[in-house]
């Protein structure tokens, strides 16, 4: 079954309540997201899901040279960063979009849906 990455983006500089305006709303969003995750798991669609620490805690690594370099901070300098994500299995994009809409409502953020490569598409890529 096709796999999709559902990413949630939020402001680069979170408040003390993460990306939420108040403690109450943060707790509400956590509860709704938890319930949504449970449902995905029960329906056998959940591959993995979790939330990330703020982008300011990221370290960027380049291991292509002889010695790897480490840089404090995220790779992209943008106003919004990946805040969490789901990896799900869905029959097709319609199903994935419907789940993303539910996830978006639960976590109160905009969700980007992106398909993972399949064996088939990798084969098409590596063949000449």
């Amino acid at each position: 079954m096709p796999r999709y990455l559902l990413s949630v983006f939020g402001p680069a500089d979170p408040t003390e309540f993460g990306t939420y305006p108040s403690r109450e709303e943060m707790l509400d969003a956590f509860a709704a997201t938890g319930a949504f995750n449970d449902r995905l798991r029960d329906e056998g669609r959940l591959v993995f899901a979790d939330g990330l620490e703020p982008a300011s805690t990221a370290t960027t690594v380049d291991g292509q040279a002889e010695r790897p370099t480490f840089t404090d901070g995220p790779y992209l300098e943008t106003k919004e960063h990946l805040g969490g994500f789901w990896v799900i299995e869905a029959a097709d994009l319609d199903e994935a979009l419907a789940l993303a809409a539910e996830g978006s409502r639960a976590c109160r953020g905009t969700v980007e849906v992106r398909p993972f490569r399949t064996e088939e598409s990798v084969r098409a890529l590596t063949e000449d």
């Binding site: 096709p2 097709d92 994935a96 598409s121």
Partner: peptide, 15 residues
């Protein structure tokens, strides 16, 4: 359409 698996079907009655 191919990569994201956009389905080739008539949507469900709800949609």
């Amino acid at each position: 359409i191919a990569a994201a698996h956009i389905p080739y079907r008539v949507p469900s009655a709800a949609d």
